[in-house]
């Protein structure tokens, strides 16, 4: 995966507990247990803006429309604008007004992180129940409703990464960020 340079190794060695590990202290004496990245896969669901870690699979706007009507519309409205839960569609040009409408289309900076959120938390009462291709489909549909993707679009890892959200430049980081 990666290697440490010598300086880092020294820094790491300086900490007492790590020292214990590296000086052949029995692994059993170290709190916790070792695990491999492959064993973590089922939990490793976070998708950063780059889209690193996006899964296989794909879904179309048309598939997403059906899924949305069946599993999302009850709370987010038939067209994503009616609520009662968070409005997902529209609001373009409203961010500088006195009553901005912040939606997936008008406000979210990345399409990749929308995939992350829908997969981890929606639908509200059955999060994790959608297959990856269904998450691609419903994401595609919501981006279509927001005028970001055409009606015949299909999303997979590569095409999702390629989407530029209208408000991508709308965020300023107050905290020093080195990326």
């Amino acid at each position: 995966m990666f290697t440490f340079d010598d300086n880092t190794r020294l820094t790491v060695l300086a900490t007492s507990i790590t020292l214990a590990i590296l000086s052949n202290k029995a692994e059993a004496d170290v709190p916790g247990r070792l695990i491999s990245e492959s064993e973590i896969a089922a939990w490793d669901i976070s998708i950063p803006p780059s889209g690193a870690g996006l899964p296989e699979g794909s879904g179309s706007v048309a598939d997403g429309a059906e899924l949305y009507a069946a599993q999302c519309a009850f709370c987010h409205g038939a067209t994503g604008t009616e609520g009662p839960a968070d409005r997902l569609v529209g609001g373009f040009g409203s961010l500088t007004s006195d009553a901005p409408t912040k939606t997936l289309g008008s406000f979210w900076p990345h399409a990749t992180t929308a995939f992350d959120y829908i997969r981890r938390a929606m639908p509200f009462y059955a999060p994790g129940s959608l297959k990856d291709s269904e998450v691609y489909a419903v994401t595609a549909y919501l981006l279509h409703l927001n005028g970001i993707l055409p009606e015949d679009a299909r999303l997979d890892a590569q095409s999702l990464r390629a989407v530029t959200m209208p408000n991508a430049a709308g965020f300023v980081a107050a905290y020093p960020s080195d990326n």
Binding site: S46, T96, K102, F107, W108, P109, Y117, G170, A174
Partner: peptide, 21 residues
Amino acid sequence: TQTKDETSKYSLSQKDGRAQQ
């Protein structure tokens, strides 16, 4: 990672329409 609760929510909207994270 730019999660929902550091972009869509819990960001502070400025007058110019941009949001501080």
